[in-house]
Write a protein that binds this DNA or RNA. Sequence first.
DNA 1: ACACTGTTTGACAGTCACTGTCACCTGTCT
DNA 2: AGACAGGTGACAGTGACTGTCAAACAGTGT
Lengths: 202, 202
Amino acid sequence: MNDPRADAAPSVPLRERKRLALRAEIQQTALQMFAAHGFDNVTTEAIAEAIGISPSTFFRHVPSKELLLLGATHRGRAQIVANFRARPADEDVADSLVAAILGRTAQFVDDEETLELWRRAMASAPAEMRRASLLNREDCDELIEAVAARLDDADELRAGVLVRSTLAAVEYAYEWWLGHDDADSLHDLTRQALEQVTRGLS
Amino acid sequence: MNDPRADAAPSVPLRERKRLALRAEIQQTALQMFAAHGFDNVTTEAIAEAIGISPSTFFRHVPSKELLLLGATHRGRAQIVANFRARPADEDVADSLVAAILGRTAQFVDDEETLELWRRAMASAPAEMRRASLLNREDCDELIEAVAARLDDADELRAGVLVRSTLAAVEYAYEWWLGHDDADSLHDLTRQALEQVTRGLS
DNA sequence: ACACTGTTTGACAGTCACTGTCACCTGTCT
DNA sequence: AGACAGGTGACAGTGACTGTCAAACAGTGT
């Protein structure tokens, strides 16, 4: 019972550890291959083979090739929504939204190496895919709904415009950061973008 | 020489008229089929067959099935950029941008029937595709560049945030309009969204 | 009416992302 | 050890594209 490995093992059913490890390996390997050879030049079959699994298994763990690239950005999507919901109800809505987003970007720090891989992989991706989106359609709609609930007036248009334009600003800051080695930190850039957008564009 | 058909024929080389007509037919037929059976349930082959052309010919005229749905929104993309460039250089940049967009949406009026088809087609499309984007990646970048050129300070981040969040607001208004039969006109909704975003979100 | 030339077309074969099925393993629990 | 859920590879299939090729066709000059 006091097997040194027992600390990690018993809580996490071991089978799940394997699954998680495999998923991480797919993600990592795919990113490396994308960065090295370009997104379009890497087939899902090649990734599977590099890891030593069958194509069927590959797709059992990965919803799509695209998400292998974009998934990094989407990760923690739900967290922004949760952050927003956790804000005090009497706070200004825009402020809550800003806080929810900054709460997420604050902890968004992959290691340098992974980041560099992702940057190169992203650069090789087809144009339509190159837009870094923090939230997918569903999560975004959920956030809009949450915001609308806090806006007393029945005008949902305002909620949507608020969320979508705010997210757009943040996403641009994100892309900017990816494209500029010398740029400020993600957090600072995000703050700048948010300030501009909430203060009124000019 | 005074053949009645000669009025239309000589300027447009006739061969091109056929091409244009075919393209329009594909677009129209596809939209009808999407609306009737759902985007995913209509294969490119089926569209080709409905029109009476081969699958090869279909793809010779259409870059992708997706663009058959989204192309309508993208049409006139370049116009927004052109509109912006045509604004006086001493005008406030945000105002120029607003004017450029409103100049486009003002004339954006397909006939009721086509619009209804598109609405239904859009509703049946997979979630990731459902976002109405006025500009594709390239056009958007071009607009950002144009805006940056007008912003004296070297800070391009501001230009990007301005463009992207403004467009996001407009796109939301557009989607809102598509989803609500009873809504105000596109033009009014767009104006509202733009006002909110330029005045500062709140 | 005639060939000459460049475009357009359909048939066909191929690639690639993804899905479904099915028989076989392999941890896990008893 | 034995049962059983969950994971796995082989395989066949679908659907959006892409490339190639020979035949049909429009536009031009004679």
